[in-house]
Measured scan of single mutants.
Amino acid sequence: EDEVKKIVKRLIENGVDDEQIKEIVKRQGVDERIVDKVLKELK
């Protein structure tokens, strides 16, 4: 989960929008619920 957080944070800093972040992270095989949780925490 910490790995996911790092990735998502980097994507947000690069101006990637939420939908794209979800797609990218899902392609890495991460559960969507984890992605949603991380996005909420970082906003």
Results as ranks from 00 to 15, higher is better:
residue 18 D to S: 10
residue 35 V to N: 00
residue 15 G to E: 03
residue 20 Q to T: 15
residue 13 E to W: 10
residue 2 D to G: 08
residue 9 K to F: 08
residue 17 D to H: 10
residue 32 E to T: 09
residue 17 D to S: 15
residue 19 E to L: 11
residue 43 K to I: 07
residue 6 K to G: 07
residue 36 D to V: 12
residue 17 D to E: 10
residue 8 V to S: 01
residue 4 V to I: 14
residue 33 R to S: 14
residue 28 Q to K: 11
residue 33 R to C: 05
residue 15 G to A: 03
residue 24 I to Q: 05
residue 30 V to E: 02
residue 39 L to Y: 03
residue 30 V to D: 01
residue 23 E to S: 10
residue 34 I to F: 06
residue 36 D to T: 11
residue 28 Q to S: 12
residue 18 D to R: 09
residue 6 K to F: 08
residue 19 E to S: 10
residue 36 D to G: 04
residue 30 V to P: 01
residue 23 E to G: 05
residue 2 D to H: 08
residue 32 E to G: 11
residue 1 E to K: 07
residue 19 E to T: 10
residue 20 Q to F: 07
residue 37 K to Q: 09
residue 30 V to N: 03
residue 24 I to P: 00
residue 33 R to P: 04
residue 15 G to S: 04
residue 11 L to C: 01
residue 41 E to W: 09
residue 42 L to Q: 03
residue 20 Q to R: 14
residue 17 D to P: 15
residue 3 E to C: 08
residue 29 G to I: 02
residue 1 E to G: 05
residue 1 E to V: 12
residue 3 E to R: 09
residue 14 N to K: 14
residue 29 G to Y: 03
residue 35 V to D: 00
residue 11 L to Y: 04
residue 7 I to N: 04
residue 8 V to Q: 00
residue 30 V to K: 04
residue 19 E to I: 11
residue 16 V to G: 02
residue 36 D to W: 06
residue 33 R to V: 10
residue 38 V to F: 07
residue 27 R to W: 06
residue 43 K to N: 08
residue 41 E to C: 06
residue 2 D to Y: 09
residue 1 E to R: 07
residue 9 K to D: 03
residue 39 L to I: 10
residue 32 E to P: 14
residue 29 G to S: 03
residue 21 I to H: 00
residue 37 K to G: 04
residue 9 K to Y: 09
residue 11 L to V: 00
residue 39 L to D: 01
residue 35 V to Q: 00
residue 25 V to M: 15
residue 15 G to H: 06
residue 43 K to R: 15
residue 24 I to F: 09
residue 13 E to Y: 10
residue 7 I to G: 02
residue 28 Q to G: 09
residue 14 N to E: 15
residue 39 L to S: 01
residue 35 V to E: 00
residue 14 N to Q: 15
residue 30 V to H: 13
residue 26 K to A: 12
residue 37 K to L: 08
residue 8 V to M: 08
residue 31 D to K: 05
residue 43 K to W: 07
residue 40 K to W: 14
residue 30 V to C: 04
residue 42 L to N: 02
residue 21 I to R: 00
residue 5 K to C: 05
residue 6 K to P: 03
residue 4 V to F: 04
residue 31 D to G: 05
residue 41 E to G: 05
residue 41 E to L: 09
residue 19 E to R: 09
residue 32 E to N: 06
residue 4 V to S: 01
residue 20 Q to S: 13
residue 39 L to F: 05
residue 40 K to E: 11
residue 27 R to I: 06
residue 19 E to D: 13
residue 29 G to T: 02
residue 24 I to N: 03
residue 43 K to L: 11
residue 41 E to Q: 11
residue 29 G to R: 03
residue 17 D to N: 13
residue 22 K to I: 13
residue 19 E to N: 10
residue 39 L to Q: 02
residue 18 D to Q: 10
residue 38 V to C: 04
residue 26 K to T: 14
residue 23 E to H: 09
residue 5 K to Y: 13
residue 22 K to A: 05
residue 2 D to T: 08
residue 16 V to C: 09
residue 41 E to H: 05
residue 40 K to R: 14
residue 26 K to I: 14
residue 13 E to G: 07
residue 19 E to M: 11
residue 6 K to I: 12
residue 33 R to M: 11
residue 38 V to E: 01
residue 39 L to N: 01
residue 9 K to I: 12
residue 15 G to P: 00
residue 30 V to S: 03
residue 25 V to F: 15
residue 21 I to L: 04
residue 11 L to K: 00
residue 34 I to P: 00
residue 21 I to V: 05
residue 31 D to H: 08
residue 37 K to A: 09
residue 34 I to N: 02
residue 18 D to W: 15
residue 11 L to R: 00
residue 38 V to Y: 08
residue 12 I to Q: 12
residue 43 K to T: 07
residue 27 R to Y: 06
